[in-house]
Design a binder for these strands. Structure first.
Length: 490
RNA sequence: GGUCCUGUGGCCGAGCGGCUAGGCAGAGCUCUGCAAAAGCUUGUACAGCGGUUCGAAUCCGCUCGGGACCUCCA
């Protein structure tokens, strides 16, 4: 069975066969959040997708080191010196210490990641915890002649860098065009060249988050931490770097420049960028004011939502679109995802009830191969989901006695569902609350009573029993063997 | 303005030269006291106009619509 993995590399704009630098080890770095406010759903999409990358690589047998940083140094909100930093500003607003803001929203981020069933990264380093590494990197870049100091600030020297290395390859832009399209700005006098970016900024007197450095008190530039931390934990060159598409420029472009200036070579083999979550066709973002917070979604409290959806439904919803496509967020789409999730999970639990036959015409081996092919084709989760629905049809058919499956088939189906649905996509079955022993025993008694009532043709009472449970959100279904029941998550 | 992406049936979304994914919703049938679930069947979609080709949703050109980035953003 072939389990080749092809990854679309943003840098080369091609799908390439994945070959780790040092198999079986794989280094994966993903840009994490800036913890100055609650993560919204758009952020979650990216992290959920790279969680699937992490899960699938692990499933393939790779020893993955997954590093996802926490940005806990506030970046400047404008290109000007007088811009405020986000964390400092939020600290003022909430009347807290900056590090209290960091703690609060880091906690929020982690709990949201958990409810969405994301695995924890192998390492989750913080920018403030790596000041020394960042300063060391600045020193190296200075030594190589690709940066200069002005007034206690250090800037990356794009002009000098371009004499030796290409700049702008990832985002596909050239400096001349950039220049034409950059408004002439005040407050740039410190820079030698408009495209230069800060590696270190001198802190103004009112700036709270500040660290001593060889160049005076200040704070690191916002691209630097990722370069410093990826190098520290994954080495000069590592396999995969991921992030949202909106980070391509300038963030990732600058990372490449910093690493190359520092170590003489590009840091990343495969660049991966996930596309945006949209609302009514527009990018979900905090600044546009159209972002959804996870708890608003679960509770259905957002004005644009008719009802709430569980985290697992949302995850399943996200998996039905390819990561490089935008995904539009709407009630209709979520409702469809909810129904399909229920069907999928219904089949998953029905697997246990399937009886094996002596012979079969179903080709579960081919199905399994197609699942690997889907994931191997640049993590094509929507195609994988389509294949899983093929498994659903087989399982339901078998359960109804309309399709014969051998014991081998059933084993294979079980493996497909467990590997791809549960392990790789990371979608969990509905809360286990409905399946503890006691409720099942009690419900068995209820089915017994209903059976008797039906035998006596007392349908009114039988229906009453069903309605009484329906009022408590417990659904009852008749089956040949007796009955089934479930919590209706409506 | 520059660079790039995108437009698929009622809705969401794959596919990216031939074999017309998948889900949700709809219709019919089977099953059923009714219903639900499930299974089966069903839907002649690829923005428009040209072109390339034996053959195009898929390639090229133009037109129209939507979006992203161009130093806040996952």
């Amino acid at each position: 069975m072939t389990k080749d993995l092809f990854i679309y590399n943003s840098l080369t704009r091609n799908k390439e066969l994945f070959q780790p630098i040092q198999s079986p080890h794989v280094g994966l770095y993903v840009c994490g959040p800036t913890v100055y406010s609650n993560v919204h759903l758009g952020n979650c999409r990216t992290f959920m997708f790279f969680d699937v990358v992490f899960r699938y690589l692990t499933h393939l047998g790779y020893k993955v080191r997954y590093v996802r940083n926490i940005t806990d140094v506030g970046h400047i909100t404008s290109q000007f010196d007088e811009g405020v930093d986000r964390i400092g500003e939020q600290a003022r607003l909430e009347q807290l210490e900056p590090m209290e803001i960091v703690q609060k929203y880091t906690d929020d981020f982690r709990s949201v990641m958990r409810v969405f069933n994301n695995h924890s990264p192998s390492i989750e380093p913080t920018a403030t915890g790596h000041m020394i590494e960042q300063m060391e990197m600045i020193k190296k870049i200075l030594d190589q002649g690709f940066a200069y100091e002005v007034n206690g600030s250090i800037y990356f020297d794009v002009q000098a860098y371009r004499k030796q290395y290409p700049y702008g390859e990832l985002s596909g832009r050239n400096v001349e065009e950039l220049y034409e399209n950059t408004r002439t700005l005040d407050g740039q006098d410190e820079k030698r060249f408009f495209a230069d970016f800060a590696l270190w900024k001198k802190a103004s007197p009112e700036h709270i988050m500040r660290w001593p450095s060889p160049w005076g008190e200040g704070f690191p530039g916002w691209h630097l931490e990722c370069s410093a931390m990826s190098t520290k934990y994954l080495g000069d060159q590592f396999d995969i770097h991921g992030g949202g598409m909106d980070l391509k420029f300038p963030h990732h472009e600058s990372e490449i420049a910093q690493n190359t200036a520092c170590c003489g070579k590009g840091p990343v083999r495969y660049w991966m960028h996930s596309n945006m979550l949209t609302v009514n066709g527009q990018k979900m973002s905090k600044s546009l004011g159209n972002s959804f917070l996870p708890h608003e979604l679960f509770a259905g409290s957002h004005p644009l939502l008719e009802k709430g959806y569980t985290p697992q439904v949302v995850r399943f919803f996200m998996m039905q679109a390819h990561y490089r496509s935008t995904l539009d967020f709407s009630n209709d789409a979520l409702n469809a995802a909810e129904r399909s999730y229920e069907r999928m999970m219904g089949a998953y639990s029905a697997l246990a009830d399937c009886k094996a036959s002596a012979s079969s015409t179903a080709d579960t081996a081919a199905l399994e191969q197609r699942c690997y092919a889907a994931m191997g084709d640049d993590f094509n989760t929507p195609v994988l989901v389509a294949e899983l629905f093929e498994a659903v049809r087989m399982i339901n058919g078998c359960k109804n006695g309309q399709l014969d499956l051998t014991a081998d088939n059933l084993l294979q189906l079980k493996r497909i569902m467990e590997v791809f649905l549960i392990e790789v996509l990371g979608v969990q079955p509905m809360e286990e609350a409905a399946s503890t022993e006691l409720p099942d025993l009690m419900m068995d008694a209820v089915f017994e009573v209903r059976k008797t009532l039906k035998e006596k043709k007392d349908y009114a009472t039988a229906d009453l029993l069903r309605d009484v449970f329906a009022k408590r959100n417990i659904g009852i279904k008749d089956t040949k063997e007796g009955g089934e029941w479930s919590y209706e998550k409506k």
